[in-house]
Amino acid sequence: MPTDNDANNKITRRNLFRKGGLAAGATVVTGTAAALATKGGSDGLVWQIDPEKCIQCGNCATYCVLDPSAVKCVHALKLCGYCDLCFAYFSPGFEPEASIEVPAVESQLCPTEAIKRRWIEGPHYEYTIDEELCIGCGKCIKGCNNFGNGSLFLQVMHNRCVNCNECSIAEACPSDAFQRVPADHPYLLKGEDHQV
């Protein structure tokens, strides 16, 4: 580019302006980079739901860019009462006495039958979540919070979440329950130590 070089080397007002601009631009860009280097250094942040703020509105199931949502129900069994009559499992209209006549599907609250129930002993049953089936609607959690121990809660599952810069569920969350947490402690679990 011979012409370009000649034009650049000539001392004109325009070239002086350009060189000044270049110096100023370079200073600003390096300055910003240096300021960010001191502020950053994190291994990155990921999205997570604070179970204490979550009100189970149902947005997690529908607003995620993934289908089904990256949000799933998690069960902290050490908080569970292992009840026979579980209000996270059975729909409100269900009567235990009539259970022989009512088909199993209609008696369940979960729209995808993602909660599995297993008899342990006496009147105690273990409830586990089939992650493949769970869509993160939070219906069971509402039931558990209202009538039970609140051992079920929603979490962003990090084997699925694509970590959008702005989470579209977070935008739609009516209780501001979504927050950025450090990637090395990516869960906010009930009944566990690493609550942030």
Partner: peptide, 25 residues
Amino acid sequence: FGAERFALPKFKSGYELPPLHVPPA
């Protein structure tokens, strides 16, 4: 929130609580 209305049963059949498993980031 999360009030323990029903205490964790004392299992006699030797049932052990499975650990809470979540996939890593």
